[in-house]
Design a binder for these strands. Structure first.
Length: 838
RNA sequence: GCCGGAGUGGCGGAAUGGCAGACGCAGAGGACUCAAAAUCCUCCGGUCGCAAGGCCGUGUAGGUUCGACUCCUAUCUCCGGCACCA
């Protein structure tokens, strides 16, 4: 007898699948489609079991759907642009492309070794001009529509490197390469995509995702977009000539309780206000301190509120009162207008600030529950809705009403207007890097900024850049790239030297899979219309916000360009847990990776796949345990031996219908009690495993059921005594098919051992026999003296005494009902009568 | 602080309101073996008991129910995300 040899078996089947091109699919409107996708990897380091868990889950889904008759698209590609390639190239004195392509080749080889059912013809690599050409094309469309624009913006700058740093290259405010060098903030012109233009839609359409996306991802996106409905109010300066200051508030109803107007330290009007004031010098020093300390990053969250009075006043347009203008470190320039009204009684932060600086704390809202707040009793801000008081003509109004009336009034009188503010900011896509998509824009002295014509796309990266990691951007240092003729006037001009954020690449890549090699358009609309939206997307929670938000944005832009008709690209999202070792996620930098290849060498891909599915439910984190893997390995060996033991008998047996066709077994067919028990067990298992695959994704529970079945068959050995060959065939075939999506290689091998022709390993998912799969449990309604005392689920044939015990009945007259029919009325006494109700 | 999730044996975990701890790991004992590995068999929440069996037990306290790991209320702890968002 041959031992289970995963190395041989896995290579054999991978070769056959490839030769038979079984995972290659085409759009076919006559068949129901299913698009299952795992997030594409960044090809660096080694593929570890964290990656493999992601792809295994996807592969199980793809294979189950295929077995259930869907036309399945299951592609894979590479998120191939990015900083690490550039750094590695500098370090190893090679080209980012060389480094990247080597990694891709390596990744691909390992993925193939795991037997994932990808259609490799659809493979994409985002660093290829045939792909990034379309990034540029989309960019130009956005530029035409005003969705791409340039503005000055702050970047991290290391004075020693004399270069821009990515956020990841800033370590606690210092340069990653120069630990003694504080990162500065510089303003330079950068490109932005107007995600804010879609803020409302991005928020609203989250409703479409409910049920299909994890609740917490939806919540994170909602918080990220951060919608606030309120009003902007203008406050005139008492000096009569400075420009009025505008604040944003969600609680205009509390404006009568305002005791200050507070500006962010970075507010553009601050300096103007301070000028000419007698404490000017002192205040400017304070302001400078405040601005610098606000650069001092993280600790600020818990920092104390600091502020100072500017000496200026504004007029409250509602009350006519003079209000002092302050500067406060807790006011954010990036949100709203960078100026807030300080209403201490009804805002926690304002309360804290006012208490510290002894500002007045007038109460203008009273709770609705009848309790009355007084200046003395007020220990913290009352921020809930209530009833307005001391608010001039608005006193007595409920908060909701006051909000409406007062913003209407502000609008009517022209000193304010209703406004909705979002936390979401436009997406800065400029990177001063080499290894990314060049932004297709040219600057001409005569014609200004000129878009590269579509016919000149792609703007290709120069082949031999000077990569030093120092100085200006690598593209800017490459004259043959920079110097170009103006498309309009033909005169000398300069190319844009920024490249795009790699999130651009991953925002629409899944559309390209539908038509990966189209050189006329990003994709064929009909093909996308067939395959989209993605039925199941699987990836880590780390991408819950950015990647998914940008993808949703891109989809809406493409829809408005008329390329597609749907509004959301992804119907269902699954966020799988991380694979950890020693309590932390596997990563190269942590040095705790279990390499996928190492795993395949030692136990084979099937064991690796099985273990990642079995060790924990897919949404939970999984602690890698070398000891536990043995269990999965042992199980596959056990199953293999079981099949091997009976293969010869089964091959000679005629099929009872076969798994390709619907299985036709029924309980009456069984001649022996042993057959009956085993057939029941296998069909019950099939029923529950089917359910787990289809709806719950409890792969670990499904595997446990299959193990249980295996144990039971094993315990029934020798099968040849009392189990006819055709029944053996049915047991072992169903067992094999249930394993097929999870451990496809060993399943294919066993399928062949059971006498099936080559090619049949793609057999349909079997249908369980309803009669056989029926639970042998029965539900019993217990009535005592006509009154329902409860329901009980018990195994068929439970002795009456046991029923009495389970129902916790005192001896009494009881009626047992099964499926709403009275089966037997008995007097419960000390006599034990076997009541069989099955 | 706000939002989301989770608390079950030594461990990973199972359980549509119906026998809590399936399945697996680790552990203990045994068979086979010169021996080991592999394999096979038995035991494996706590406690009382020679045993049959009893009692307790799903973070904590209540509640609903004939019946609660599961539903409700409160509370504690842990994990994740966001966080001076006006």
């Amino acid at each position: 007898m041959a031992e289970y040899n995963p190395r041989l078996i896995e290579a054999k089947w991978q070769k056959r699948w490839e030769e038979a091109r079984v995972f290659e699919t085409e759009a076919d409107p006559s068949k129901p489609k299913y698009y299952v996708l795992e997030m594409l990897p960044y090809p660096s380091g080694t593929l570890h079991m964290g990656h493999m868990r992601n792809y295994t889950i996807g592969d199980v889904v793809a294979r189950v759907k295929r077995m259930r008759g869907f036309n399945v698209i299951h592609p894979m590609g590479w998120d191939a642009f990015g900083l690490p390639a550039e750094n590695a190239a500098i370090k190893n004195n090679t080209h980012p492309r060389t480094w990247t392509n080597n990694n891709i080749a390596e990744f691909q080889r390992v993925l193939r070794r795991f037997g994932f059912s990808y259609d490799w013809r659809r493979e994409i690599s985002t660093c290829e001009p045939e792909y990034y050409k379309w990034n540029q094309w989309f960019f130009l469309r956005m530029l035409e529509r005003g969705l791409a624009y340039r503005k000055k913006s702050r970047v991290n700058w290391c004075p020693k490197c004399a270069t821009v740093l990515a956020n990841e290259q800033v370590v606690n405010g210092f340069c990653w390469r120069h630990e003694d060098t504080r990162v500065e903030s510089r303003e330079i012109e950068q490109w932005f995509l107007k995600t804010t233009a879609y803020a409302e839609q991005l928020l609203d359409d989250l409703k479409l995702l409910e049920g299909g996306w994890p609740e917490r991802v939806i919540t994170m996106q909602r918080n990220w977009i951060g919608k606030s409905v309120g009003a902007k109010v203008k406050f005139a300066n008492t000096d009569g000539h400075s420009a009025p200051i505008e604040v944003f508030t969600t609680r205009i109803d509390t404006i009568y309780g305002m005791s200050a107007l507070i500006l962010a330290p970075g507010h553009p009007q601050v300096e103007h206000l301070l000028k000419g004031w007698n404490h000017e010098k002192e205040l400017f020093t304070q302001l400078k301190d405040m601005r610098q300390s606000s650069v001092k990053v993280e600790e600020l969250e818990t920092a104390e509120k600091v502020g100072f009075f500017t000496g200026r006043h504004v007029v409250n347009p509602f009350s006519g009162m003079e209000i002092p203008v302050w500067v406060g470190n807790f006011v954010l320039m990036e949100y709203g207008t960078g100026a807030v009204m300080c209403v201490p009684a009804h805002d926690e932060r304002d309360f804290e600030f006012a208490t510290k600086y002894k500002l007045a704390i007038p109460i203008v809202v009273q709770p609705k529950d009848g309790t009355e707040l007084t200046d003395v009793s007020l220990k913290e801000a009352f921020t809930e809705y209530g009833k307005s008081v001391n608010s001039g003509p608005y006193s007595g109004l409920e908060t909701a009403e006051a909000l409406a009336k007062m913003s209407a009034e502000a609008e009517a009188k022209g000193f304010g207007k209703r406004e909705t503010v979002f936390r979401l900011k436009d997406w800065g896509i400029s990177r001063q890097r080499y290894w990314g998509t060049p932004i297709p824009v040219i600057y001409c002295d005569k014609d200004g900024m000129v878009a590269v014509p579509d016919t000149d796309l792609p703007v290709v990266l120069p082949a031999n850049p000077k990569l030093t990691g120092m100085g200006e951007s690598p593209l800017a240092a490459t004259p043959e790239f920079v110097n170009v003729k103006c498309p309009k006037c033909g005169g000398m001009a300069r190319r844009e030297t920024d490249t795009m954020d790699t999130f651009v690449d991953s925002s629409w890549y899944f559309y390209r899979y539908c038509d990966a090699h189209n050189d006329k358009t990003p994709y064929d609309a009909a093909k996308v219309a067939y395959w989209f939206p993605i039925d199941q997307y699987i990836g880590g929670i780390t991408h819950a916000i950015l990647h998914l938000l940008y993808s949703r944005f891109w989809c809406k832009v493409m829809r408005d360009l008329g390329l597609i008709t749907h509004s959301e690209p992804i119907s269902r999202l699954f966020t799988q847990g991380m694979v950890q070792k020693g309590g932390v996620a596997m990563s190269k930098s942590k040095g705790n990776v279990v390499g996928a290849e190492e795993m395949a060498e030692k136990y084979g891909a099937d064991t690796g796949r099985l273990y990642t599915l079995f060790a924990a439910p897919p949404e939970k984190d999984l602690e890698w345990s070398e000891e536990s893997i043995e269990g999965s390995w042992r199980f596959l060996n056990r199953v293999y031996r079981l099949i091997e033991r009976h293969a010869e008998t089964v091959r000679r047996a005629k099929s009872r219908g076969g798994a390709e066709a619907n299985l036709t077994a029924n309980a009456d067919d069984a001649v022996s009690a042993k057959e009956k028990v085993l057939l029941r067990k296998v069909h019950q298992t099939l029923r529950r495993v089917t359910q787990d695959f289809e709806t719950r994704w409890h792969f670990n529970a499904a595997i446990a059921l299959i193990m249980e079945l295996t144990n039971e068959i094993h315990a029934a050995e020798p099968l040849d005594e009392g189990v006819r060959p055709e029944v053996q065939r049915e047991l072992l075939e169903l067992l094999t098919l249930m394993l097929a999506p999870m451990t496809p290689h060993i399943a294919a091998e066993m399928w062949e051992m059971l006498g099936h022709e080559e090619g049949q390993w793609l057999a349909r998912w079997p249908v369980f026999d309803v009669e056989l799969a029926r639970e042998t449990e029965v539900e019993i309604v217990v009535q005592v003296n006509g009154r329902v005392r409860g329901k009980l689920k018990v195994p068929a044939g439970t002795p009456e005494a046991e029923l009495v015990r389970l129902a916790k009945l005192e001896p009494a007259v009881a009626t047992y009902l099964v499926n709403k029919r009275v089966v037997k009325t008995i007097v419960v006494a000390d006599k034990l009568v076997n009541l069989v109700v099955a």
